[in-house]
Design a protein around this nucleic acid. Structure first.
Lengths: 345, 345
DNA sequence: TTGTAGGCGTTATCAT
DNA sequence: ATGATAACGCCTACAA
């Protein structure tokens, strides 16, 4: 036995047959005698033969590998998405190549190049915060290269976008706060540059309007960074500066919600009695903090799974990219916990 | 221009030279006229030529891809490790193929097979909870295949293991609890199958012994799953069944610590006054819960980065596997927060 | 039922 | 300074 992996040739030589015979025998092609098949398979087993996927890729111009480009792995939401991607890809026999952009456009571009060099069959992309021009994507789309965007999706022609219904998630959350009797609901908003932030704010506004409540611009504060520290500071400022103190917060994300909660507690306010809070994303810690944090759950795993299914269907030509109903929108779910419930039901 | 990617042949044909010339020109080999180089590069640029990494892999029997096998992506610690892996791999020109085992041995094995088929250059592994026999790894190690284990590392010959100093982390944590005057310190232990669990328990035991404190077997409870639900239940049972109630918990991980905290609060016990708690891993939520949770921080990013550096050094034969000082151990850091401090300093 | 030959894209080796 | 050829491992149309 030679060094390294056994190949079809090795088997062929040892059995005094041609490599085509071995190839066919291994795949149970018709027209190979049972005797030969048996011998080939036996030896393959013995030599621990393993097909060389690289050679196959070269031959078929297909790598059975998809590339995933995300801003950051260390982000609960994205890690759930990856998990969904990985599940579906694995079950359908695909590999997943992963790169994170760290929110850098340059890295996004270079990762794309590398992956294309590696003959990946398609992309799953959530683009970086720096990305404002989508030329590098639309060029590929125009060539018919399979790409599915998720969460952070571009407004360009032919893009297949998988996203959650941020508007409805926000609308539901604020409606819930209203039903709980909160009357001065503030919104800790996200960066205006992302569509998801705008959609959540729109949901907030519409929920208020829908109940005949006034929209107070002072109650809408942008939290560009999105950390709990930031929103703690912002919340404190808000209570100091405003005549009419808010009695509830709907936050663009859970970190911001936690910041608001900590700030309120520090000011001696009780949650949910004095102040109600709802976050967005349903990070793991929501159920672990005290009081537990109500939040709008985003189906990260499903989003990853769904995006991957669509991508693989396109790659395998089970569906035409053009016949997908766009955009693909997944439902959020409002998880009501203690931080926002003050009425007995 | 033909469909799909331009190849060296396309360039060669168009320029009426041989493909070898093109190949050499692109790589600035000596013995190619500047004129030719210029023309080749120009056309390559124009045709948007991109080398086919698959063909290269086949030729060189090297894929410049490493395989990462981890239990779960949705796990703060692992996601930081991945981040570190990805950073180093990217900067050194390697791709990262990722699979999660979901703690299943069967999946671990099949992922290995798939990756080997894909001719990856080496593995980074943190094995599943089901894995008790390391035959599938040692077989590869014996063949000289590069593998670096991290976090969950096996006790087998020749394995290169990158881990944190779990023993010292645990020792420090428990010592801190003792210094805070806690006297009946329980340990929510991890699955016995993992070395990290055993090391942490050893640190716990030695810290107690070191202060002349008795080790009560009833205070050491295994939490096989490691969720907060599980440890809530376990903590409640403990308080019901034991004559001598514990007054502190050192948990094998943060989730378990949170469970203990919630259970104690539910029983009306104050933290840290009545019960002190220290977790392990320093998940993001530690600073967000109330009271904030003391925890032993593991350098996840560094661990991923370090493991990758070693792996790539071995792959590139910059070092011999045998000359690495084993095991590679990274320091933990005890982050003292409110959950374990009841003495004025 | 089996073998032969060519090719996927690239590069190393040996000519010219 | 450049070309021809073979090889990496596999598959498949065609031949026998």
């Amino acid at each position: 036995m030679k060094i390294g992996q056994a190949t079809i040739k090795d088997i062929a030589r040892e059995l005094n047959v041609s490599s085509s015979t071995v190839s066919r025998a291994l795949k149970d092609y018709p027209g190979i005698s049972d005797e030969t098949k048996r011998k080939v398979k036996e030896l393959a087993e013995k030599l621990n033969y393993r097909p060389n996927a690289i050679a196959l890729s070269l031959r078929k111009s297909r790598s059975y590998t998809i590339g995933v480009i995300i801003p950051e792995v260390v982000h609960f939401f994205f890690s759930t998405v990856i998990s969904g991607i990985e599940e579906v890809a694995y079950s359908r026999g695909y590999n997943v190549i992963l790169t994170q952009t760290n929110e850098k456009l340059a890295r996004e571009k270079s990762s794309i190049e590398t992956m294309l060099s590696n003959q990946i069959d398609g992309f799953l992309v959530s683009y970086s915060k720096e990305t404002e021009d989508f030329e590098h994507f639309s060029k590929l789309l125009d060539q018919g290269f399979p790409i599915v965007f998720f969460d952070r999706v571009p407004a360009i022609p032919n893009a297949i976008n998988v996203m959650v219904d941020d508007y409805k998630g926000a609308f539901d959350a604020v409606t819930h706060l209203i039903h709980q009797g909160y009357e001065r609901i503030a919104h800790l908003a996200g960066p205006k540059s992302l569509m998801i932030s705008k959609e959540r704010e729109r949901g907030y506004r519409d929920a208020l309007a829908n109940h005949g409540m006034e929209i107070n611009p002072e109650y809408i504060i942008e939290c560009p960074v999105g950390t709990d520290d930031e929103s703690q500071r912002i919340t404190k400022d808000l209570f100091q500066n405003l005549e009419q103190k808010p009695d509830a917060f709907f936050a663009n994300n859970d970190m911001a919600a936690v910041g608001a909660m900590l700030a309120c507690k520090a000011m001696g306010l009780r949650i949910p009695e004095d102040v109600g809070i709802v976050g967005f994303s349903n990070w793991q810690f929501c159920s672990m903090i005290d009081p537990s944090l109500s939040s709008v759950a985003q189906p990260g795993f499903n989003m990853g799974a769904k995006a991957t299914e669509i991508l693989l269907d396109i790659i395998e030509k089970k569906i035409e990219a053009s016949e997908i109903e766009l955009p693909v929108t997944l439902d959020t779910e409002l998880l009501v916990r203690k931080s926002s419930v003050r009425l007995k039901s």
